[in-house]
Computed example of a mutant assay.
Amino acid sequence: MPLCGNNIKAVCVSNGIRVKAEEQKEFAMAEDKKPNCGDLIEIPRGLYQHWAIYVGDGYVVHLASASEHANAGASSVKSVVHNKATVKREKLEDVVGNDTYYINNHLDEKYEPHPIQDILQDAKILVDKELQYGVTTKNCEHFVTLLRYGQPHSQQVEDAAVYGSLIAGIVVLGYVIFKLATSKDKEKEKNEHGNGK
């Protein structure tokens, strides 16, 4: 059975103190980043976050498209085009590389986490399996939240949709303002030329 450490969050929970998702990130950093079995691991990669689930003894399980591997090259494009990714069990430090990570069980207040043994068993069964992959519907965050909660969920996809809609709205508003301004200028110009004759 994998060895999993205790953390401040567990002490808080055992004493009836609720811990918000954003506080969990702070706890993870304050505790030298020692996750417990079943914890979701968020790894910021610049424009997106990669996600894994901690399975003990320094290992995580994650859905890895070819783009998640260093020096992926042409195989990265191939994996996205073919919509496939492989479930990997790897050392947390190898998956994180030079990046940082956070323990982020962000849906604990919304969904009841599965029992740890079920999470570990399901993760073990999936290792080395090739699964469908989709950036917006079946990504690494969907994969780990399905394991932990039984619900595929991706906050980064939801955030991207909100930001995309906001940007689209701003562009449309800018276009409308531009059109109104230019139509008023044309009308003014037309009136000036029409009155000058």
Score class of each variant (00 low, 15 high):
Met1Val: 15
Leu3Gln: 05
Asn6Phe: 10
Cys12Thr: 01
Val13His: 06
Ser14Glu: 09
Asn15Thr: 08
Arg18Thr: 08
Glu22Asn: 10
Lys33Gly: 09
Pro35Trp: 07
Cys37Ser: 08
Cys37Tyr: 10
Cys37Ile: 03
Gly38Trp: 11
Ile41Gln: 02
Glu42Arg: 02
Arg45Tyr: 01
Gly46Phe: 03
Gln49Cys: 15
Ala52Trp: 14
Ile53Cys: 03
Gly56Gln: 04
Gly56His: 08
Tyr59Asn: 05
Val60Arg: 01
Val60Leu: 01
His62Gln: 04
Ala66Gly: 10
Ala70His: 11
Asn71Ile: 06
Val80Gly: 05
Val81Trp: 06
Lys88Thr: 14
Lys88Asn: 10
Lys91Asp: 05
Leu92Trp: 00
Asn98Asp: 13
Thr100Ser: 07
Ile103Trp: 05
Asn104Met: 04
Lys110Asp: 04
Ile116Tyr: 12
Lys124Ser: 13
Lys124Gly: 08
Gly134Asp: 13
Lys138Gln: 15
His142Thr: 01
His142Ile: 01
His153Phe: 11
Tyr163His: 14
Ser165Cys: 10
Ile167Trp: 09
Ile170Arg: 09
Val171Tyr: 03
Gly174Ala: 14
Ile177Ala: 14
Ala181Pro: 00
Thr182Trp: 14
Lys184Phe: 15
Glu187Val: 13
Lys188Tyr: 07
Lys190Phe: 12
Gly194Tyr: 07
Lys197His: 11
